[in-house]
Amino acid sequence: MATQEVKVFGVWESPYSKRVEIALKMKGVEYEYVEEDLSTKSSELLKYNPVHKKVPVFLHNGKPIVESLVILEYIDETWKSGTPILPEDPHERATSRFWANFVDDKLLPAAVKYLKSKGGEKAVNEEISELLSVLENELKGKKFFGGDSIGLIDIASNIIALWLDVIQEVVGVEVFTKEKHPKLFKWSEEYLNCSIIKETLPPRADLLAFWQSRVQAPAA
């Protein structure tokens, strides 16, 4: 096979960027990673994502693709080697897309509200806890949402496994615990213990320091 140019433009603390890197590693695809500074966005980032001007941007042989869930599907369809990201069965594929979008459309906005309120709004805390319970029910006794191996929903749920845990430590109010969400908590431990995940996600201590500085900065 001819040499292919594969680039990922991202930022180290972004769960969206890490989704793409995890997918590429699952497929055994070599890629070049370009770290962006979103305070001074590069000309390449603005060129390849002129609409949203954000990461991740995925570049394959000079052709850009944006939006992390779209990129994950493209990677799965382009490289058939390695671990499948979406199931073959059409109904199961559609179900995977639904829950991945549930994470982005429901859970992530709730997490943003939780962060902005610094855990101080009971209604927000209850909302995110209920959404986590809804997602937890989709595990249905499986090790991962994808069954015995990591799939689309697992990768999309990066924010729960690491980012949410870090953020709740920063704000000092827990919404995701072993007691409230036992199956999802166990999933999180299994997910973070996978070799590809461990080598790709940022160190927890670094992410904790980053969010501590972000949350505390306005009060400084």
Rank of each mutant, 00 (worst) to 15 (best):
A123M: 11
N193V: 10
E127V: 08
V134S: 07
N61Q: 06
E130P: 04
S42V: 02
V170H: 04
P50C: 01
K27F: 14
V70G: 04
N137F: 05
F144R: 08
S195D: 15
L184I: 04
K7V: 04
P87D: 03
I22C: 06
P87Y: 06
G146T: 08
R214F: 02
W99I: 00
P84G: 06
L59I: 14
T177A: 01
E77K: 14
A219M: 15
D37E: 11
D37W: 14
P87F: 05
F145D: 01
V103A: 01
P218C: 07
L208K: 12
L45T: 03
L192H: 05
A220V: 12
I71T: 02
K140A: 13
G62C: 09
E136M: 09
L38R: 12
V171R: 07
S157K: 01
V166Y: 11
H181W: 04
L162I: 12
I167D: 00
V166T: 05
H52P: 03
S117A: 15
V166H: 08
W99E: 00
V57D: 05
K47F: 11
P203H: 04
I196A: 10
W12N: 03
E189H: 09
A111G: 14
M26P: 11
Y31D: 04
V20R: 08
I85P: 09
P203Y: 04
D104W: 05
G28Q: 09
I160T: 08
I153R: 03
K180W: 08
T3K: 14
Y16D: 00
